[in-house]
Design a protein around this nucleic acid. Structure first.
Length: 222
DNA sequence: GTCCAGGGCCTAC
DNA sequence: GTAGGCCATGGA
């Protein structure tokens, strides 16, 4: 069976470097990480665009909006009531404990930041790891539904593993490298969006031969 | 009209 | 501790 590092190299040689998270600032990463929860990224982009047009892509601006105003701005991203609450709670937390400076919060020891992120309402393991990796540049591997889906197909996962197990597996088998984790997650998302979308199995999918046959030649991606 | 998308919270056993 | 319901929009 192919190992995570072999699959990484296969994906990278097929797709090239991604150098990822579609955001201009660390705070935008936080916004995107919360808004994308169980939501198509296109809808998230629409919401972020409306926040940008309203000039509200800062911690202060988000806090100054009423919850109802924020709900309307992020409405296209779905679950807008709970996401508005979560965004404002995050901003208030940074304001209260880190003088409103996201860098002060993120630029500390990784497990410390992670544990603190996980205490915040609406920040679960995937959201926390996305913020750590893409906003804080910490080597924290992000596991998402694409990761679960692809690596189950590849025979690396059985599909019964929980989030902490999967994250630990990847982090044990990969070098501790922010850029590699960044690229890898980006490549997984790219590959699944391109070829594995919505399909419970890879029938009629260009990557069917690698997804359905764990021992096939990984040089033949997709 | 139906299904799905880059989760996480809450409640009931 | 864990399975199931709930949150909501927009595109395919």
């Amino acid at each position: 069976m192919a190992t995570p590092i072999q699959i990484y190299h296969a994906l990278q040689s097929y797709y090239g470097s991604r150098d990822w998270w579609p955001a201009e600032t660390p705070f935008e990463v936080v916004i995107g990480a919360i808004l994308t929860q169980n939501t198509n990224w296109n809808n998230v982009e629409t919401a972020i665009t409306s926040l940008r047009q309203a000039n509200t892509l800062t911690i202060n601006a988000i806090m100054q909006l009423s919850q109802q105003e924020l709900e309307q701005l992020i409405r296209p991203s779905g679950f807008f009531r709970q996401k508005a609450e979560r965004l404002q709670l995050f901003c208030h937390y940074i304001q209260q404990h880190y003088q409103g400076c996201l860098d002060n919060f993120l630029e500390r020891e990784m497990t410390l930041v992670r544990d603190e992120l996980l205490t915040l309402k609406g920040v679960g393991p995937e959201t926390a790891d996305s913020i750590l990796l893409y906003a804080g540049h910490h080597p924290s591997f992000v596991v998402d539904s694409y990761t679960m889906r692809l690596f189950k197909r590849l025979g690396v996962l059985t599909g019964t593993e929980k989030y902490p197990q999967v994250r630990a597996l990847f982090m044990a088998q990969l070098p501790v490298d922010v850029q590699l984790y960044n690229e890898y997650h980006a490549l997984i998302v790219n590959h699944c969006k391109e070829f594995c979308r919505k399909q419970p199995q890879c029938n009629n999918c260009p990557c069917a031969d690698i997804c359905l046959e764990p021992n096939r030649n990984i040089d033949k991606l997709p």
